[in-house]
């Protein structure tokens, strides 16, 4: 009898523990456990007080659609996903990209000339060889942080 109670309590603790962890990670309703992966990440050099850009590939390995809803960094006062585009008259312009949906099994390429994570108002100089943290916030899996190198694109 005591053994049964013991295992019941143990199971209860495990269940509660797992639920708490999923709340810390974000709203996991309707998500089958898989991974959002961030790969190939790098950032441009930049001077303190100015802007830089970070790039990476986001792979949605989960079984559900997810949405990139925000970004931040430890080296900038603000970070935001922007999109470079060509206007009707042929000039180059930039605008906030808004929330970006990534279907299950798909990739989102954040690459030069298209999307970039704009690191706004840098807190310090970023030189080639430095590193920084970029945190992406997803609607379902929550926040994911990656440490990335600063490099000069070639």
């Amino acid at each position: 009898m005591m053994k049964k109670i013991y295992f019941l309590v143990l199971a209860l603790f495990i269940f509660v523990g797992c639920s708490s962890k999923s709340q810390q990670d974000g709203d996991n309703n309707n998500v089958v456990f898989g991974k959002i992966e961030l790969s190939g990440a790098w950032a441009r050099p930049g001077a303190k007080g100015q802007n830089s850009a970070a790039y990476m590939t986001i792979t949605n390995g989960t079984a559900s659609t997810d949405t990139l809803i925000g970004a931040s960094s430890n080296v900038s006062k603000k970070a935001q996903v922007h999109e470079s585009y060509k206007t009707d008259s042929g000039e180059t312009a930039m605008r906030p990209a808004g929330n970006l949906v990534i279907d299950s099994g798909n990739k989102l390429q954040i690459t030069p000339g298209r999307y970039h994570i704009m690191l706004m108002n840098l807190k310090r100089d970023l030189a080639a060889g430095d590193s920084l943290d970029v945190t992406l916030n997803f609607q379902h899996v929550g926040k994911k942080t990656v440490r990335i190198p600063v490099k000069i694109q070639n």
Binding site: N51, M94, G113, I152, Q153, N154
Partner: peptide, 20 residues
């Protein structure tokens, strides 16, 4: 312009590649 985060550094990088 140097406050440009994406296209202008890409331009600079392209010029650098041409030089190389």
């Amino acid at each position: 312009y140097t406050h440009c985060p994406d296209i202008c550094p890409l331009i600079t990088s392209n010029l650098s590649n041409i030089q190389d």
